[in-house]
Design a protein around this nucleic acid. Structure first.
Length: 279
DNA sequence: CTCAGTGTTCAGTG
DNA sequence: TCACTGAACACTGA
């Protein structure tokens, strides 16, 4: 379930496994869709023998900083993630069986890196909406260069944040999902932020008052900070958040505060919101 | 069996 | 230019 907090968790796992290590083996699936028609042989040539200096993230994009270019960049799409072997394969994506997966290599694996200390890291993606690419300078080239501020580490000060919002005319839900505005916000976080900021997702960005924009920025900072700080996926979204009641497990569709939840398609995506709270 | 879905990209339209 | 819509991608789980 990769939005920014899950991708940041994946980045930390990748740093733990790979940072400072040398890549001693590369296995690459023959999947031209996922690998943008870069042949497996080119992946091997680019990565084999390289040392990993760091793993970087901007929005939902990750890349490995190696001691020689090009560098590999990943996007998890909706179902992608990193896996590590051993007792309790780490599942960063909540699909398939609950709990630690034991399969190695994992299902739908696209890339496996082996390191000089015996560690391994696999990139897998069931639905194949994710991407892995090779880039000479990932931050300076599309798609990463087209992203807006990172929603966690790059939130602009209030004045410039206001300017960015008032310059736009799209519905707030669409604006939050627009990665060229705030990189890393996905469908769930967008709904959570608008709920906590008490803003109707259909409101046009340019019509927000100064106070609403301030609430929006505060809610964005808080939702991301809390979910990034969480130790595990179950702590990522506190029980009082709209998140938990978003998909009617309870057909009553009320929030923890007994507020009626409504579902609409806004900005092309299913949107859960609370009319009695969001104006 | 059917259908919606945590995301992005592109073609077509207004 | 801006913004919206729908389709496509391929699989899972309700």
């Amino acid at each position: 379930m990769p939005e920014l907090p899950e991708v940041e968790a994946a980045r930390r796992v990748a740093e733990r496994v790979a940072r400072g290590r040398r890549i001693v083996d590369v296995w690459c699936a023959d999947d031209p869709i996922v690998f943008e028609r870069v042949p497996a042989a080119r992946w091997r040539r680019a990565l084999l023998g390289r040392r990993v200096r760091a793993v970087r993230r901007h929005g939902k994009h990750l890349w490995f900083e190696l001691d020689r270019r090009p560098w590999p960049c990943m996007h998890f799409g909706m179902t992608g993630g990193f896996h590590t072997p051993g007792r309790g394969t780490l599942w960063l994506v909540a699909h398939g069986k609950k709990g630690p997966g034991l399969a190695w290599p994992p299902r739908f694996v696209k890339l496996i890196l082996k390191f000089d200390d015996g560690g391994e890291l696999a990139f897998a993606d069931a639905r194949r909406l994710g991407r892995a690419r090779l880039r000479l300078d990932p931050a300076a080239e599309p798609p990463i260069s087209l992203l807006g501020f990172d929603a966690w580490r790059g939130l602009p000060p209030l004045a410039s944040f206001k300017a960015l919002v008032t310059a736009r005319s799209s519905p707030m839900k669409a604006l939050l999902l627009d990665q060229s505005f705030a990189a890393g916000v996905g469908n769930w976080i967008a709904d959570e932020v608008l709920y906590q900021a008490r803003i109707d997702p259909r409101r046009r960005a340019g019509t927000l008052t100064g106070d609403e924009i301030r609430r929006l920025r505060t809610a964005l900072a808080r939702v991301i900070a809390v979910s990034v700080r969480a130790r595990n996926d179950s702590d990522r979204y506190p029980r009082t958040w709209l998140f938990h009641d978003r998909w009617g497990k309870n057909p009553k569709a009320y929030t923890a505060r007994r507020e009626k939840i409504r579902h609409d398609t806004i900005g092309g995506r299913t949107t859960a919101w609370v009319p009695s709270v969001q104006r």
